[in-house]
Design a protein around this nucleic acid. Structure first.
Length: 197
DNA sequence: CCCTGATTCGC
DNA sequence: GCGAATCAGG
């Protein structure tokens, strides 16, 4: 494979888009992430800075920079709720559910006021609930940043507090969740129907 | 262990 | 120019 104009265009676009080198490599095919990174450098766009902010040679001497830049307002401290990894229990067997697909790091997280849809206990079967508790004890407790394509993206806890993490166990092949959580996420409609609260 | 980008250097 | 190997880091 060679760097045809077309492929370079894809590379540029994806890189500018914040995609990782490995993702780009995967997309292009026939190249490794190393190749992508190498090309990126040769193209001179290693710095993900846009055209703006051209020269930044490293300042020789400290520059006071008086402007105490404070975003101001207490609201600035508000931490955005993490993009819901999914709305788990909402999948029908026939439709495997749209992959929650964590937005490739660039995506803007819409500072959610409303909490992400958490699976409520009364919506899942008792058996599944039991196994869920079981799994939560073994969870790797990953943060949003630590999730990858092969870690379970099941949210545990309250996103509004520090007691929040993702399962993180190895996912079932091709699924967004580990074995146990696939079980609670992909339930037949019949077993969900009219579950009493 | 999974992943990230950065750099080097023989080709 | 290319990219594997390696490095440095999370």
């Amino acid at each position: 494979m060679s760097w045809t104009e077309e492929r370079v265009e894809i590379l540029k676009k994806m890189w500018a888009d914040g995609q990782s080198a490995s993702q780009i490599a995967k997309e292009l095919g026939g190249v490794t992430r190393n190749a992508v990174i190498g090309k990126v450098h040769r193209l001179g766009l290693s710095n993900r800075n846009t055209g703006a902010a051209p020269a930044k040679p490293a300042e020789p001497v400290a520059k006071p920079a008086p402007a105490a830049e404070k975003p101001a307002g207490p609201a600035a401290a508000a931490k955005p709720a993490p993009q819901p990894a999914a709305a788990p229990a909402a999948a029908a067997p026939a439709s495997p559910a749209p992959k929650p697909a964590l937005p490739a790091r660039k995506a803007i997280i819409p500072a959610g006021q409303p909490l992400p849809p958490q699976p409520s206990a009364n919506e899942i079967s008792p058996e599944a609930l039991a196994s869920q508790r079981e799994v939560e004890k073994k969870a790797r407790k990953l943060t949003l940043m630590e999730l990858t394509e092969r870690t379970c993206k099941w949210p545990i806890g309250d996103p509004a507090t520090e007691d929040f993490w993702f399962c993180g166990l190895p996912v079932e092949q091709g699924k967004p969740y580990c074995e146990a959580h696939v079980g609670v996420a992909f339930q037949p409609m019949s077993s969900r129907r009219d579950r009493k609260r």
